[in-house]
Design a binder for these strands. Structure first.
Lengths: 307, 307
DNA sequence: TTCCCTTACGGAACCCGTAAATATT
DNA sequence: AATATTTACGGGTTCCGTAAGGGAA
């Protein structure tokens, strides 16, 4: 009759609640988050409310649903925790099964020629090994490896020479350097800038760009371009040939790794005159597990220009 | 009547279970882990059993209680997840409160002179600011900051010149370099090796050591010494003067940062002839929060020899 | 009104503690 | 036999779903 009220299991934050918070923050909606999680809106609402009372902070503003600073920070932690849980589960799964199937993801511009040569060496070494390769956007390679959807992933990105890409928490996944390639600016044939030997970024700051976030994650480039938003269009696909076609059509410039492999009608390339920027390829795998992926790691390191 | 058996919430691993697993692995005993967690042995047993069935792997061997490879790996993940949860909670706590009390932890050999000068500058700049300083072993500084027990921590360790100490997951805590100091070997006065200009490690490999893991975390040194276990005694305290007294008593050599501050009767020092090893001090704080600790960061960076 | 989140409430599942059983030294 | 973990079982709590309530566009 008195206050036999039990506030709440003021225990530690639990994974369930953190996952719901993250879904709400990402979806911008309780309803959508619930659908994604397989709960009712009510359940998600209660979970977030429980977190908020437990922590004593409002985590998301409602109408519109938008994270508070505290909520955004907590969601960031939650994302890393959930990623680590994925990795943990995937690693455990590999403790028992050891199939003769090797699944590889590769971002489209991640040194496909090196991958090709390595896989060829692999097949001739062990013809019974079945290999599956899939193209994914660089942003999703970490999740693919972490969830165990693939055994290994080739990723590429823009960084400074010798500097790793820092794709996940240090030590969460194993990453091996594979290649570093100069960056070039591709332009439509006949573009006046093509006459130059090298191109500096400030020359290109005002030029229209064809941005392809799924092909070249270019935050580093944007940083150097300064606060000025690059003009131009966005190509959201995964196909380098389409990107080059858009450039050839005169829609703007694009930044790609120099590779003698990709040639296209109607485009020309000029070296990028920014020595601190380079295109780098790395191989991501789970740590502390063994399997057919180790063969790939070995073959790639053998073929790799790096080290 | 039939099989209305509900196997178990095959959901995600939950924090509670992971924490119990970690406690069991660390304690080497279900009973001790339960006591530490405030549960009964039975509860801990059930939690670990639940994890094992959910993941389909035996995680700890019983009698004696010892983690399997899979369990050890999972416990490692669990430790990092729990640390991140601590950080998250501490950060959230700082989103509201902003007291005029600054609490600092420092490992004993972490450039105490620099800290002193910085704190003096701080006090004269803001006399109303109350400052508490506490000495802790270097191994526990991360936990102190993560749990919010202190606002900042000065840590020292042995590393390679220019190389950070890598004390936590990258980006989990903010770390600022403060100082790098050469390492010296201290020996009892009259020791024949004191006549040399520099000492190489192989000369010292067979010599007796006074190891002080709470003063100089020396895994890096052990690595270089090779598989041969150093002989000698272990000093488990936090007091450099006691360490020097043990050395002066002739119990063995010790490795400490060169500092004109600490002088003791009966010991002499020789430079360590291993240029790849250096003593480094860093300052750890929470990220994304502000408070009186920012003043300390500023004052230390101003006084710091580095950068 | 409509949409979306919150609150109320009830039932089912979960989780931990007590206690008996079992295994190892 | 003593110590330590597992299993059985019961009670209290938590948690989610249904459904009603409320506020903003």
């Amino acid at each position: 009759m008195i206050d036999d009220v039990v506030i709440r299991n003021t225990d530690v934050m639990e994974i369930r609640d953190l996952r719901s918070l993250l879904a709400v923050v990402r979806c911008g909606s309780f309803t959508a988050a619930a659908a994604e999680l397989g709960y009712t809106q009510s359940a998600v609402s209660q979970q977030v409310a429980a977190l908020e009372t437990e922590l004593g902070h409002r985590l998301v503003e409602r109408r519109p649903v938008r994270p508070t600073p505290a909520g955004a920070r907590l969601a960031e932690h939650a994302a890393r925790i959930l990623l680590r849980l994925d990795v943990a589960r995937s690693e455990l799964a590999h403790f028992s099964a050891k199939p003769s199937l090797l699944t590889v993801a590769a971002s489209p511009l991640a040194s496909p020629l090196v991958l090709g040569r390595a896989l060829r060496a692999l097949s001739s070494a062990d013809p019974s090994l079945e290999v599956h390769v899939r193209s994914v956007a660089p942003q999703s390679t970490v999740a693919e490896v972490a969830s165990g959807a693939v055994d290994a992933a080739l990723v590429d990105g823009v960084t400074t020479p010798g500097e790793p890409l820092h794709l996940a928490d240090a030590g969460l996944l194993a990453s091996a350097p594979i290649a570093e390639t100069p960056l070039v600016v591709v332009l439509a044939t006949g573009h006046p800038l093509l006459r130059r030997e090298v191109l500096d970024l400030d020359v290109l700051a005002d030029a229209p760009w064809v941005r392809a976030p799924n092909l070249v994650a270019a935050e580093r480039v944007q940083d150097l371009l300064g606060p000025a938003r690059p003009t131009g269009i966005v190509y959201d696909g995964l196909d380098p040939v389409t990107l080059l076609a858009l450039v050839a059509a005169g829609l703007g410039a694009a930044l790609v790794p120099e590779t003698s492999f990709i040639r296209a009608e109607g485009v020309g390339a000029v070296a990028l005159g920014v020595p601190s920027l380079i295109h780098r390829t790395e191989l991501l795998t789970l740590r502390g597990t063994s399997g057919p992926k180790d063969l790939l790691v070995g073959a790639l390191r053998a073929k790799a220009p790096l080290r």
